[in-house]
Design a protein around this nucleic acid. Structure first.
Lengths: 259, 259
DNA sequence: AGTCGTAACTCATAAGGACAAGTGACGTCA
DNA sequence: TGACGTCACTTGTCCTTATGAGTTACGACT
């Protein structure tokens, strides 16, 4: 019934109409949208057109479609888990992470040897194809069901100078910080944050819904002279979790790039 | 020709075949994929099936399709711009941001009055529907072409106690920090980072390609007693830019939640 | 030589039909 | 009563056909 003809393609007009209805609250979160047949009648278009419009809204993450049941307005709920990226030291000097104890390991960590890629090589200030110890963990926060993939990458170079690391390359991060500190290093950290769409295997491991990007954090532990010691990666679905940082003002003037 | 029949739907098999070819390097980045007609012949399927497969790869961000030209393997290039989220103070105590001078304002900042939403209310530790000054900027980094949307939200409460803010609510962040410091506040900051798919207006303003999430940073400036003073938001396409943070170890033991 | 039309390619949009598959409710039968 | 089969609903998949629209190159005409 409702006549539409404004922007461009038919299916985009239908999509826009439904989108407005959702954003204006006419269709409440978690409520059932009209079925494809009803939408066909409502807008006087064919089924492919309706499905095309629905596909567009799906790609925007506005709706979820369940086979045999219908299309539901996605509860655009904010993330339920805040991952605080901070590092603290106890009175004895040991390291503690604010999130260290919420995560459980879903399976045995898997360790392996690998080489730097263009990306990890740049972060570690190494060339490509340099040898690394790797350790992958699948983490779960039981209280929210949030899943995350954690990876530790330690250059052979570094592991050689720190016997404990070479023997057991797959320790929890806090333990690695402690070992390196005991070995005489003074640690500081930098993190870079990216977002991208998941690869198929990430989609399944992290159990992500449609149109859900993943947040990708890379934490580099630096020595006192600013040289990278090792790398931690954390990946998780951006629908359930967010990152939190603390910032304080430096005394030095801002630099644009790290030497 | 190449026979396929493994996982599930036909179009998924076709998509998987093309995806493998891309990830294995058979189709180089920026190269032209076979046309729809060629793919129909190659896999012996109909045009809708080919288009369905292509739509799936598009949603994954693996390919870009250009009307009249063809489908291209997306150069999965890492972000070209690193946005450092740090704050420095000059010898005179004024504030400087590492990125402060790379951004140019694409248009006049627009100021307005608004009210807290559930989300911004929580961040500012206010209720819903509390009055705010708002200021929106569209920023551009000319060297990379990266666009970003910046928003400042100042509660009326705060603006009233700081005359300079009330008169001119739309100052650059560094200037606001300075004004608040002059007014006797001691600032610290926290940031939360999220990623999500863009809304249609964000897609156009930020000129985002398909399947590109946006990174959403909310920076809260706190007073010495940890009460929020005001809020800055930054939004940009995750395809071009990444965030960088510095972390140092606290002396205090980690707390899980802020009081 | 330069301009412009046309043809031949590309993807985009739209309609129609048919059947498969998941879901839930209802009713029958043991 | 309980188990199960069937049916009516939903979306998923796949095909055919047709037309519109952006891109490029070639060639004819000026």
């Amino acid at each position: 019934m409702s006549e539409i003809q404004r922007p461009g393609a038919l299916y985009q007009q239908v999509a826009a109409a439904i989108r407005e209805a959702i954003l204006s609250g006419e269709f409440a979160p978690d409520s059932l949208l009209p079925s494809e047949a009803q939408l066909m009648a409502r807008y006087g278009v064919s089924r492919p057109t309706v499905r095309n419009a629905i596909a567009a809204l799906r790609a925007e993450g506005l709706i979820d479609v369940r086979h045999g049941k219908g299309s539901f307005v996605r509860a655009s709920g904010q993330p339920v888990l805040t991952i605080e990226r901070r590092i603290s030291r106890t009175a004895e000097g040991k390291f503690a992470m604010p999130n260290g104890d919420i995560w459980q390991e879903a399976e045995q960590p898997s360790t392996y040897r690998t080489r730097t890629t263009k990306d990890t090589g740049r972060l570690l200030q190494l060339g490509e194809e340099e040898a690394l110890f790797g350790c992958d963990r699948l983490l779960i926060d039981p209280s929210t069901g949030t899943r995350a993939m954690h990876r530790t990458l330690i250059p052979f170079e570094v592991a050689e100078t720190v016997p404990l690391l070479g023997k057991e390359p797959c320790k929890p991060p806090a333990a690695i910080y402690w070992v390196l500190t005991q070995a005489g290093h003074t640690l500081t950290w930098t993190e870079t944050v990216r977002a991208r769409m998941p690869l198929p295997d990430e989609r399944t491991t992290l159990q992500l819904p449609d149109a859900t990007p993943i947040l990708h954090v890379a934490r580099i532990a630096h020595d006192a002279d600013d040289r990278p010691l090792f790398l931690e990666q954390l990946r998780f679905g951006a629908d359930r979790a967010e990152l939190a940082y603390r910032i304080t003002a430096d005394k030095q003037p801002a630099r644009h790039t790290r030497a």
